[in-house]
Amino acid sequence: SHLLVAEPEKIYAMPDPTMPESDIKALTTLCDLADRELVVIIGWAKHIPGFSTLSLGDQMSLLQSAWMEILILSIVFRSLPYEDELVYAEDYIMDEEHSRLTGLLDLYVSILQLVRKYKKLKVEKEEFVTLKAIALANSDSMHIEDMEAVQKLQDALHEALQDFESSQHQEDPRRAGKLLMTLPLLRQTATKAVQHFYSIKVQGKVPMHKLFLEMLEAKV
């Protein structure tokens, strides 16, 4: 219930109407969107019960290693009602062709695989918000100072998921496990996404805001 209340509002990409369509424009729009989403994610993390009691250093380490998984999981959840389209934002939905033109076809295919997985599981909002928090707590950062405190946070979120499943999904005693088994693919997809946007950063043709750059560099 805390996580449902903490769930951020809808976000909009607001592509620049004066810029002609191009792959650079699409990537610029996505990087600008990600930068604004990162601000929202950092605010959101502070509402996860137990997160703010971690040291500031550990809060930073978890966010630096998990931010792309959180971004992608949000895209996945927004895209569930759609067919073969990714909802990066309410006003920015990309199909296969648009993804190909933007050089994001590989990412499109990977994220769509996740979408299919969650569609099959008929994932619910309660499960999505809990999985997002688990992705943050379980981000395997190598710079954690207080492992016990992070483990406690993981345990509390894991318990919340199991409580939800045992009360709402008695028909499938292994549903919590099935949901957790989607995390490796989320991790793999997020790693691919970070590497791809880092290579775009190196090419230097797409403007990127400071927070996005900071988080990108922290990850590589």
């Binding site: 605010g43 250093g57 930073m60 966010l63 900071e214 988080m215």
Partner: peptide
Amino acid sequence: KEKHKILHRLLQNST
């Protein structure tokens, strides 16, 4: 830590 100024500042801001 200095390199991650914005994240540091945003986490410290009270909501």
